[in-house]
Design a protein around this nucleic acid. Sequence first.
DNA 1: GACCAGGCACATC
DNA 2: GATGTGCATGGT
Length: 222
Amino acid sequence: MNNEVRLKKIYKKLFENYGEQKWWPADSKLECAIGAVLTQNTSWQNVEKAIINIKSVMEITVENLSAISANELSLLIRPSGFYRQKAERIKRVIEFINTRYEGKIDKMEDDNILDLRRGLLSINGIGPETADCIVLYAAKKPVFVIDKYTYRLLYRHGFVERETSYQEMQDLFTDNLDNEQVLFGEYHALIVEVGKNHCKKRAACEGCPVNFDTHKFSFEII
DNA sequence: GACCAGGCACATC
DNA sequence: GATGTGCATGGT
């Protein structure tokens, strides 16, 4: 079975098991972008606490986040961890929206997909995964997001070697699937869902410590 | 108390 | 280019 058939089969199976995810879990595009930074190497549970804290003192708008100092912001997002550098990173994203899109995040959608991605990657603290989350879920453009769960899925099922690159994994999806924003968004969301779901059960997973070499998902694919 | 979580940048060799 | 380290809170 070739990669195209296998990847499509995996999607079908995930969708049947978990249903439509309708990501990203946020009330607005800006909240999505902020969440993308906050979730860097952090559980979503902790990100939610940070977002609730921000919302408790202000509405999440470009204006409000421009006005607040990095130091004040850092105190609000403490539960997400790495809070000092994440506050700086969020401020840089806001600055990017201000200078490039006149403070209007909706204008990101008018930008060329590659230019937008390059622009985001030029921001200190925004790497490929964070940039792609923003491009896909905030700007609604078709790029495939690669994260740790995706890597595990691909590695465990023999699509890639242990040493691989973001680009290689991204190409695997984009070369074999229709170039559709909704599909890419759902697929990535489903991979995260099954990954998180399995991790909750890890204590009960005999001989399967959470480890890149042995981590398995809780259901059989193909 | 150890290990993990939806990364990224930077120092050093 | 590869390898190691700092960033930090909260759940299991």
